[in-house]
Design a protein around this nucleic acid. Structure first.
Lengths: 198, 198
DNA sequence: GTCTATAAAGGGATAGAC
DNA sequence: GTCTATCCCTTTATAGAC
């Protein structure tokens, strides 16, 4: 007589996450979610009172258990240059492995503009650990700079590259290897360490 | 007996742009657009055959006549450091002045993933001139680097900062002046020129 | 060129059988 | 816990008067 409810509920959310990530709240219907799971739309209402609640639960589900290990890299006994490189590479790999997660954050920042609750969810659940790690990393490299601006600059360099990946292919100089995390991480690390004048 | 049609059609698009920018295609109804203009929803169908056509026209309208002058800065007789700074500042100011435009690009890259036509529209109409200017700038500063990666890195540094503005306030170290284009441009220029080790 | 009225379809949500 | 059936409202889109 074990409860099997938790699994079912989580199954729904896991199937809903990629749908919401790709089309947004108003771009996905309850019928589409139900079809993706292989159940009837009415059955969703047994697990969630309404679409909004299901959506918020899906976002929270997507944002939980993603506290991946940047701190591990920070505590390594390595030159800071090597640390930074591993650090950037780790974030690149994560974004490549979890495209739905990245798209959902991207979309939440866009759609949640003005909704403090939604934005705080991202800030607290998603970025908090990332951010703390980047701050630590940045201070080790450049203690006198504004760490807030610097942390978002480092994130931006990485994230924007993947955000624009679908459209980058149409620009001059685009190469297949520009989507290789090793190449991207090398480029970003080099730029961060030495700047344009290197 | 002058034709007043063009004006009316453009008026509709100009009112629709901010709505689509903030809520996306499926987040905006024909009634909302009509209300924003002060006309009946049915009347919209006199100007556009359907919602999809109106949307595409709105995006094209938003993306046209935005060829702002970066080339002017490039041709100035100034030290490259000063050029870069003006260049970055110019882009920051533009994003601040045209938040709808920036949000619409942001949203189109997200939603248009996989749709080659929509992505090409962005590539050709919006970024083409930006991109060419950044390439020129980057090559002047750092001819041996990969100019494609570099151009997107420079864009990314600037754009990501504004993208995350609504959520940045919830992070440690956030200050009001982080939303001042002068402060942002100074930070980014410094980082690009000298890197973290400065 | 804009309106009212309305058709036709879609989508959120509920009732109740199993 | 899932299904069928259905309600009801919204939305896209059309028809036709003015």
């Amino acid at each position: 007589m074990r409860p099997i409810h938790p699994k079912t509920k989580t199954d729904i959310l896991e199937k809903a996450i990629p749908l919401f990530a790709r089309a947004g709240f108003s771009g996905v219907t309850m019928r589409q979610i139900a079809t993706a799971i292989g159940m009837n739309a009415a059955s969703l209402y047994h697990h969630f009172p309404d679409k909004q609640t299901l959506y918020v639960a899906a976002v929270q589900q997507a944002f939980s258990n993603r506290e991946f290990v940047l701190s591990e890299i920070l505590s390594m006994q390595l030159p800071v240059e090597e640390k930074l490189h591993r650090f950037v590479k780790r974030i690149c790999d994560f974004i490549e492995e979890e495209p739905d997660f990245s798209m959902l954050i991207h979309r939440e920042i866009l759609d949640g503009d003005g909704d403090e609750t939604r934005l705080r969810l991202i800030a607290d659940h998603v970025f908090k650990n990332f951010f703390a790690a980047v701050i630590t990393m940045a201070k080790e490299l450049s203690p006198e700079k504004d760490s807030h601006l610097l942390a978002f600059s480092i994130f931006g360099l990485i994230v924007y590259h993947y955000q624009t990946a679908p459209v980058r292919q149409f620009f001059p100089g685009a190469k297949p290897e520009h989507n290789d995390s090793q190449v991207v991480a090398d480029h970003i690390t080099d730029l961060l360490l030495a700047g344009l004048k290197s």
